[in-house]
Amino acid sequence: MPMCDNCQNPLIPHPATITKIIDETPDVKTFQVVFDDPEIQKNFRPKPGQVAQFSVIGVGEATISITSALPRIIKENMVEFSIKKVGRLTTVIHELEVGSKVAIRGPYGTHFPYEMMKGKDLLFIGGGIGLAPLRSLIDFVLDEENRDQYGKVDIIYGARSKADLCFKYDLFDRWPKCKDTNVYVTIDREEPGWDGHVGFVPSYLEELNPSPENRVAITCGPPIMIKFVLQGLEKMGYKDDQVITTLELKMKCGIGKCGRCNIGYKYVCVDGPVFSLAQLRELPPEF
């Protein structure tokens, strides 16, 4: 007989306040939020790659990856969520202002295997809003407390246009200043005022051809980009357990009950969202 005396209801979100909004692109904004209850804020300790359920009470709730990482969450006492306007709820979220109330529960899901990555070079490959979940790991690794435990960090990132690049302040300012860190940015088509690389992410990856030697590749982006990036990495000699990705499926409960995020018998919300390519190959191709 299952019992549940005094257990916490994991489906109740915690009120929080938006303290800052950063316009990343025409359809992506980063929201800095602080839980209203200082105890909750103090105990909110997500690991890189985890997600949270983000509510506008009265409108709805969606799974959003946590964009900032732990040392900064503690230091700056706030959590960041980068949200693309794609549907009903995210349209409302984009209309919120500093001071607006939201509600958050989590963190949920698996995290990037940052322990396994220690001592290794890291290759991040992101496209569009797909940089948001990677950013939590990039920030974690590049934080001065953790930086020495990891080797070289290479970040390949692309978007449709210059305007569609997320985290420009990180890409062009903060990250390149970090030790042993290279940032390679590309956009899909030529445009005036852009003298950087032009082309899709998978072809830029093949052009740069980073060696699989002692390196872990972490990728996230639109499904079509991921597909070609995985093919490219395989060609370059990356083994399945050297490639990590994070999946986005429609989720509701975030706690492995509501059913819709299953891939085979795995639930992306609790068994993911982070999977190695080796783990993904064990699952049916239904994502």
Partner: peptide
């Protein structure tokens, strides 16, 4: 259904009614 609702996360709505 117990196996679903009484796992790593406890579904208190279900478990309360069950109890």
């Amino acid at each position: 259904m117990d196996k679903v609702f009484d796992r790593e996360y406890k579904d208190t709505y279900y478990l309360d009614k069950r109890a």
